[in-house]
């Protein structure tokens, strides 16, 4: 590139686009070559709801990670947190798109993200609560990444080809998320007296929200993807990290449900409403617009 031809670079063809991002974006179609036909024995409505559950988890946690942007403790963490947010956002887009195919409604990713009311969001409450301090965010990420990584491994045998493709790709991403959260749990837990106190407080605060990830919804049971199986291995993996960080595995009880219902049923904490109000505000100011 010479300075006489600054703008020539802008005319370069699209196939080079991926390489132009410093950290990559995964914007290339990850479903290339994946058979997107619905399996005959899978209920489309159930599959759609399940894709919304997992898609909403990823979408809402990515929004919380995005909130760290320009507020992270170090520039390396700015890069890393944005990277995690991008991974989850990518997973959410695939899952929500699949939800619209599965239920036959033809709704796209943005229809789900911007135009559903709060009670139709199916994410667990763990991902929606406010960020808290860095230790709280690390604790939340540790729990989520450990559980979601394990689930994606399970879903490599899922009854839907798109779900399988998302799970295979997502498992690699979640492995990095888990590694990142583990590294910071160790640094904070075994760092200074103050950081250990914050990390323990973070774990204690998120712990009651963990159980929801292992509590099966009827849709999951019908699809044969019972998350109960994750409980033991995930708890064991978490205990190992927490012990190595010289912290105490919390014993707090699961957060109560409301009339038996929680996030997967669309019953949330007070944190989700304001998050969605912000998330959806511009799109809803311009109904029918294309962006």
């Amino acid at each position: 590139m010479t300075d006489d031809h600054v703008y020539l670079t802008l005319a370069e063809s699209d196939h080079e686009a991926e390489a132009r991002w410093a950290y990559g974006t995964g914007f290339a179609d990850p479903l290339l070559g994946v058979d997107t036909a619905l399996a005959p024995d899978v209920d489309g409505a159930d599959l759609s709801l399940y894709c919304q559950m997992l898609g909403d988890d990823a979408l809402i946690l990515s929004q919380r990670l995005i909130e760290w942007c320009t507020r992270a403790p170090e520039l390396e963490e700015e890069v890393a947190l944005a990277n995690l947010g991008l991974d989850l956002l990518g997973q959410a887009r695939l899952l929500l798109s699949r939800a619209g195919q599965a239920d036959g409604s033809g709704r796209g990713e943005d229809d789900f993200a911007y135009w559903r009311p709060e009670h139709e969001f199916r994410n667990v409450r763990l991902v929606e609560v406010a960020n808290g301090d860095f230790a709280f965010s690390v604790a939340r990420l540790l729990l989520f990444a450990t559980a979601r990584g394990a689930l994606y491994e399970l879903l490599a045998g899922a009854p839907d080809p798109v779900l399988r493709a998302v799970a295979v790709r997502g498992a690699k991403e979640l492995a990095y998320h888990q590694e990142y959260a583990t590294a910071w749990t160790l640094r904070l837990g075994d760092g200074t007296a103050y950081s250990a106190e914050r990390m323990q407080a973070g774990l204690d605060a998120v712990w009651p929200l963990l159980d929801e990830l292992f509590t099966p919804h009827e849709v999951e049971l019908r699809l044969g993807v019972d998350p109960t199986a994750l409980r033991e291995p995930v708890l064991a993996a978490l205990a190992e990290v927490i012990t190595e960080a010289r912290l105490t595995v919390p014993t707090a009880l699961p957060l109560a449900r409301i009339g038996g219902r929680a996030g997967r049923d669309g019953v949330h904490t007070e944190a989700l409403g304001p998050l969605l109000a912000e998330f959806q505000s511009v799109a809803r100011e311009h109904p029918g617009a294309t962006w």
Binding site: Y23, I66, A82, L89, Y114, E278, F279, V282, A283, W291
Partner: peptide, 13 residues
């Protein structure tokens, strides 16, 4: 507040 998920991803990247 990015009004589409694609724009959100581009802006975040």
């Amino acid at each position: 507040r990015a009004p589409s998920l694609r724009r959100k991803a581009i802006l975040l990247a």
